[in-house]
Design a protein around this nucleic acid. Structure first.
Lengths: 218, 218
DNA sequence: CGGCAAGTTGATGTTTGTCAAGTGGGGTGG
DNA sequence: CCACCCCACTTGACAAACATCAACTTGCCG
């Protein structure tokens, strides 16, 4: 039940309607693109297992990671505005996603108020999350950015019933740097320093938060 | 007609329905807050005249400008996810906004497909715009950020039928710096340098773009 | 188990932030 | 309507944070 796509906040009688909508699941292998910038937009997705990153490219070719999606989170909203995707979505590990056809979802939202509510909140959440990330990029120091990122992932893990204290971050240091508007070296150094200060415990992609309050205070 | 709130892309027979929805307009004076972070979310807004900035505050008090809204643009979507606003909206000059009650709009969206489509696109556009701004903040140099900002405002002016070549930017240098993740001094220096290079012509808040291609090439 | 991508760490350079001083313009009150 | 005052803006000198370049190590994937 926890694993269900686009979950949370639907009353029991509406679940079947949503389930009928989800035609299929799709596996996406590590490094593979679920969709690319410019692709036609037909579906929203929910991460069923694994994790993906979203990236956006500047015209000169520079790419930036604009988001990280963990299991249970929604994906693909960047396609709604223009009928084609503005971002690319790439699997960070072998993953599976549920496919939610957008036209059908729209129809359902017109029939069922709580579905409409749910979709609106989903979009609203992404708007707020991105605004918060703009804050991170615009106002925080490198240390603060890394700390904020770890706390964000930790909290999202907790929300989905996983451990908030330790997790595998499948992004590379370069991905993290890109997402945080800094370089892979700075991320690496910062994590090392956090470890020396006893805030975290890192072993490559595995991260354990040792001193939560300390991290918050960075 | 151009001035109508939440315009563009509605068929003639739907306009009256939307107009019935817009209960009222509201003046907001320069420096006054239309809403503040934490305020209950009841309405969306459309800027009828003037301009506003949206800001978000970190817990330690640091504030960052997260958006600029010009006449014709929508405002308030940051409240949908949590039933209270995540950002504050402050008028940059004496302005007026149209008030669109959200509950009523939701109902209308369930009745009229094109209204639903319009609202979705509005939210989708903001998602994409914010992602693009994350790119700006994360990947571009100070010069590139300022250039990108000027081009963005120019383009938005053009879209709404105003001059893309010259405009009054009612933000202060500090607001611009905050929005661009830099300082007011850097913004000021950059604008001066652009002027010396013959890219723009600035006189305080008035800006004229002299060499569009040059700006794009920064 | 071998090879290569990812990660770590150090030395150095550049961009941008910070502090400071001075100028200018617009709004308010006389 | 004018003048004053304050806030915004400009510009310079200096400092710090972070990027860049480089060499080396680790560990993961095939």
């Amino acid at each position: 039940m926890r694993q269900l796509c686009m979950p949370q906040g639907l009353s029991p009688d509406e679940l079947p309607k949503l389930e009928a909508l989800i035609c299929s699941a799709r596996p996406v292998r590590r490094g593979e693109a679920l969709y690319r910038s410019g692709d036609a937009f037909d579906n929203l997705y929910a991460v069923r297992s694994g994790s993906l990153k979203t990236t956006m490219a500047h015209r000169d070719g520079r790419e930036q990671v604009t988001g990280l999606r963990l299991a249970g989170e929604a994906l693909g909203l960047d396609g709604i505005s223009d009928d084609k995707h503005a971002c690319s979505a790439t699997a960070l590990e072998d993953s599976t996603v549920c496919i939610v056809p957008y036209v059908a979802l729209k129809r359902l939202c017109r029939e069922v108020g709580s579905m409409q509510e749910r979709l609106h909140k989903l979009m609203g959440e992404q708007i707020v999350r991105e605004a918060a990330q703009m804050m991170v990029l615009g106002s925080l120091s490198a240390d603060e950015r890394v700390a904020a990122f770890l706390l964000d992932v930790s909290e999202r893990n907790a929300q989905r019933g996983y451990s908030s204290a330790e997790f595998n971050l499948r992004m590379t240091r370069e991905d993290m740097g890109s997402y945080l508007g800094t370089t892979l070296e700075t991320v690496s150094r910062t994590l090392s320093r956090f470890q020396k200060r006893g805030l975290i415990d890192t072993q490559g992609k595995f991260i354990r938060i040792v001193d939560l309050e300390g991290l918050r205070a960075v």
